[in-house]
Simulated scan of single mutants.
Amino acid sequence: MSAPLAALLGRKAEGLPPPEPVDFRSLVLPRSPNTCLAAPAGAHPAAHLATPPLPAGAAAAWPVLRRLGQRFPNTYPLAEWPERRQAQWVERSPRLGFPDVIAAELEEGPGGAAGLFLYSRSLFGWSDLGVNRRRVQAWIEALDAALRAR
Rank of each mutant, 00 (worst) to 15 (best):
M1R: 05
S2A: 11
S2M: 08
S2P: 15
A3N: 14
A3C: 12
P4I: 15
A6P: 02
A6Q: 13
A6M: 12
A7N: 01
R11C: 03
A13M: 06
G15W: 06
L16M: 10
L16T: 03
L16S: 04
P17C: 13
P17D: 14
P17Y: 11
P19V: 12
P19Y: 10
P21A: 15
V22E: 02
D23I: 10
D23F: 12
F24H: 07
S26P: 03
L29V: 01
R31G: 15
R31I: 07
P33D: 09
N34I: 02
N34A: 15
T35H: 14
T35N: 11
T35M: 08
T35W: 09
C36S: 04
C36V: 00
C36E: 01
L37I: 06
A39K: 04
A39W: 00
P40Y: 01
P40R: 02
G42P: 11
A47C: 08
A47M: 04
H48P: 01
H48D: 15
L49K: 10
A50W: 08
T51M: 01
T51Q: 01
T51A: 13
L54K: 06
P55A: 03
P55S: 03
A56L: 03
A58T: 09
A61Q: 00
W62S: 04
W62V: 01
P63N: 10
V64M: 08
L65C: 09
Q70G: 14
R71V: 09
R71S: 14
F72R: 05
N74V: 06
T75K: 06
P77L: 11
A79F: 08
E83C: 12
R84Q: 12
R84I: 08
R85A: 04
R85L: 05
Q88M: 15
Q88K: 12
V90N: 04
E91G: 07
E91I: 13
R92I: 14
P94S: 09
R95L: 15
G97C: 13
F98E: 02
P99Q: 01
I102E: 00
A104K: 00
L106N: 00
L106K: 05
L106S: 05
E107Y: 01
E108L: 03
G109Y: 06
G111N: 11
G111K: 13
G111C: 08
G112H: 10
A113P: 00
A113Y: 03
A113I: 01
A114C: 12
A114W: 07
A114I: 02
G115L: 01
L118I: 14
Y119N: 07
R121Q: 10
R121N: 04
R121D: 00
S122T: 04
L123T: 05
L123N: 10
F124R: 06
G125V: 06
G125N: 15
W126F: 15
D128W: 02
G130L: 13
G130M: 12
V131Y: 03
N132W: 09
N132S: 14
Q137T: 03
I140A: 05
A142Y: 07
L143I: 13
L143Y: 05
D144V: 11
A145M: 11
A146V: 07
L147M: 09
L147E: 14
